[in-house]
Amino acid sequence: MILRGKAGAALAALVIVAVAGCAGDGAKRGKVALGGGLLSGAVGTLVNERRGAGPAQDPGQLAAAALKSLPGPVMLAQIGPGAGYTVLGLYGENGDRRTYATPGEQAMVFRNGILVATRGYGNDLMSADPGAAGQLVRSRSAGSAERIWRYLDGNNVERPLRMNCAVQPGGTQAAQLGGRAVTVRQMNETCATGPLKIDNTYLVTDAGLILASRQWIGPGLGHVSLQVLRP
């Protein structure tokens, strides 16, 4: 996407296109219409918290509309129980880090499917080192890892939170990916430090793709439930 080829005027023009496009990479392009109903499939199994209690909004229709209006990778997310669903489109890609943004330009950053940052939510996860946990989850194997999450305190200092995590494989189930039936295995991760204990759940395909997950963002925001609509 960036500056290829020709020097001179053509290059300058390309630069402008590249930057002008920045604000519109994927997600910002279309405000997605909201509807009513329920999504079956992976998010349905993970989002077990009072479905439909929030704003009357149908994740199924939302997902379909998002897939139609957004050309690239798309995710569906729900932060916290009872909260509304939102779609996120790919906003930037840097090495193994992918930034997804909502139409309102809040963002989540993933490293191979593991949430490593959020932006625009007030109590953001500033950065995270998943350690070996990401590899364990994607390879669907048991093991333990030390993970670090970092948050801003009220005085602009980044505060790390370290936890020891255990990853365990669970059962398998059928799911849909792009209209195709796939088998996913549930991976359970439990992390603890002192009195704080959190759980993450991932549904992982044979190929190591995290198709859906329920991941902990932090003490201020709780969990986010995520589903990949288009990888």
Partner: peptide, 22 residues
């Protein structure tokens, strides 16, 4: 407590992401 704002990280929009070079 000035060190406990309602939104420690702010609620402003996400900044533009880095675009790595080809």
């Amino acid at each position: 407590d000035p060190r406990r704002p309602p939104f420690p990280s702010g609620i402003e929009k996400t900044p533009l992401p880095v675009r790595p070079r080809p």
